[in-house]
Each structure stands twice: as structure tokens, then as C-alpha cells.
């Protein structure tokens, strides 16, 4: 077994088998895994907000779904991975508390998921699997050797997508 690389909130990293990559306690944030099966290489970005254009302080590109996906692709390309080889698995985007702000049709979790899917569509990256929404937190661990994304939640059985 290789090392486990930890990705923080509004951050990203890449890994190559036998290493694996994880992010802990996703709530309404979304973890986006982009992977290349042939090269057994993956990148994980932990995005927090849907849209960088709606916010003034948007220099941290990994924080937003739109720029986070762009940056993740750039990072993978920088280590020789081709965009057309990439596939995606995503998890997170929960609604932790049942409250909504006036004028908000979708929860922040739903908005994050929709924005991630839109960014992936823009780059023509297929989404192979997703485990999103509902009302609980998720820890995710991706193994680039098997392309498995393991999802751990409090008080629930582990899930592999």
C-alpha cells in the first residue's frame, strides 16, 4: 500500500498508484475526482462554493466549482495527463441543516453539485459515478489503481462507487 494524500478544504492535489487520495468530512462541499485509468493517476479537488464570478475575493481557484475543475485539469496536464483521457467521480453536496435563505431555490450543496457537473460538461469529461445530496457528511478515498471511490459516513455502511 502506498501513502494516503490528504486534501484540505478549498484545496487540491494529485496522486499516482500505489498512493491514494482522500478528503475528510465533506458536508455541502463537493469532492471531485478526475482520473486517468491508463496512467493510474488521479486528482482531487474539494470545492466549497459554486461560482467564482459571484464573489469578489476569488483568488483561491480551488474554492469554487467552476475554477476548481479548471485548475484540477491544468494540474493534471502539467504532469503529462491528457484531458481527453480523464473521467470523473464526485461526492458530497449534502444539506446538513434544513434551513434555506429567502430567494434561494437550491441549497448550497445542490448548487455546488450542479456547478461541478456543468464544469465537467464544459470540458467533456464523463461522470462515471456520483454520490451526492441528501443530509449527511462524507469522507472519500480514491484509489487510482482500482478507480474505486470509497465513501464513509457516520453511522452508515461504507459505500464504493
Amino acid at each position: 500500500m502506498g501513502e494516503i494524500i490528504k486534501v484540505g478544504i478549498a484545496a487540491l492535489d494529485v496522486c499516482k498508484a500505489p498512493d491514494s487520495i482522500t478528503t475528510l468530512g465533506l458536508g455541502s462541499c463537493v469532492g471531485v475526482v478526475l482520473y486517468d485509468e491508463l496512467n493510474k493517476t488521479a486528482g482531487l479537488v474539494h470545492v466549497m462554493l459554486p461560482d467564482s464570478t459571484r464573489i469578489r475575493e476569488n483568488t483561491n481557484r480551488a474554492k469554487f466549482a467552476d475554477t476548481g475543475v479548471d485548475l484540477m485539469i491544468e494540474r493534471l496536464e502539467a504532469i503529462g495527463i491528457k484531458k481527453m483521457m480523464l473521467k470523473a467521480k464526485i461526492a458530497g453536496g449534502a444539506k446538513m441543516f434544513e434551513f434555506s435563505r429567502p430567494g434561494e431555490k437550491y441549497s448550497i450543496g445542490d448548487q455546488n453539485v450542479m456547478a461541478v457537473l456543468q464544469a465537467l460538461r464544459r470540458h467533456r469529461i464523463p461522470v462515471v459515478a456520483q454520490d451526492t445530496g441528501l443530509n449527511y457528511g462524507r469522507t472519500i478515498l480514491f484509489n487510482p489503481a482500482t478507480y474505486e471511490l470509497k465513501i464513509t459516513s457516520a453511522g452508515k455502511m461504507d459505500k464504493v462507487i
Binding site: G27, S28, L49, R56, K63, A94, G137, S153
Partner: peptide, 22 residues
Amino acid sequence: VCIDMAGAILSVPVIEFGQTGD
């Protein structure tokens, strides 16, 4: 009320101020 992982619960205030800075 929510019972869950600390990271998931604390992401709610984190997202609130994520909108104004890092």
C-alpha cells in the same frame, strides 16, 4: 439539529464566510 462528522457540520459556517475571503 445535526449529528454528523465535525467537518461536515462546520462546513456550514465555513461556507458562510468562504463567500467573503479565505
